[in-house]
Design a protein around this nucleic acid. Structure first.
Lengths: 115, 115
DNA sequence: TCAATATATAACCACATAGCGATTTATTCA
DNA sequence: TGAATAAATCGCTATGTGGTTATATATTGA
């Protein structure tokens, strides 16, 4: 099936929302429970303005929901699929690192042999 | 478990590799079969130099493998997990679009009612 | 209503990256 | 060995994006 161009763009946008370490830290914190923007600002270790911008990216992608409650805004995960995604990627990255490690050990062993 | 910073960076890098429409087009083409850089250049509809750069991003992330064969280089998928990832994201995006559509219809219906 | 508080936005900077054409680097084959 | 071909890299530009501080916009509570 010829994926239409628009669909590909949407998928790219979704992945882009997940492609920043600060946003991943935010999502990792939300895994535990929903949190206010202020709490997330403490966790993300950057300015409140920056967190707000990241939250806009995540909510535009439909990954996160913003619920105003009084003077604060509660942020929650709107698309639980992200945790399946992250698990898959973690597995892939772990495999990758194992390969790197194996290669490194092979090279080290070889060096000793050559010496 | 407190995801270490380095792990988060690696995951972000992996998602970043998937966050570009041209790279997704390339991966979509590779779903069918492995292909040479030249074939991928035709499919991606951009310059050979650009495709080469995208392939570097994908192979650095461990998503794609490059196998020189004579004067050509054969590109193949090294991490099949990407197709699971893409399915999950496609589902999420589809749900998102359905919600938008529902909202649009609700608004239209409401307009008629109000009129 | 007004002060206080929490978010969001604006304006800006530094840097990353997708794109291009031109060039370099292999590799085959005559 | 050379010519031809395929892929990678270089140098460049335009745009996007993560970060900042300063400002604007609600919303509560006195």
């Amino acid at each position: 099936m010829a994926l239409p161009e628009k669909a590909i763009d949407r998928v790219a946008l979704y992945f882009k929302a997940l492609s920043d370490p600060t946003r991943l830290r935010i999502l990792n914190a939300l895994r535990e429970s929903e949190r206010s923007v202020g709490e997330l600002t403490d966790i993300a270790q950057c300015s409140q303005a920056n967190v707000s911008k990241h939250l806009r990216v995540l909510s535009d992608a439909g990954i996160v929901a913003r619920t105003p409650r009084g003077t604060t805004t509660v942020i929650s995960v709107a698309d639980p699929a992200i945790y399946d995604l992250c698990s898959l990627v973690c597995d892939s990255v772990a495999r990758e690192l194992e390969k790197d490690l194996a290669l490194h050990q092979a090279l080290t062993a070889n060096r000793k042999q050559v010496r």
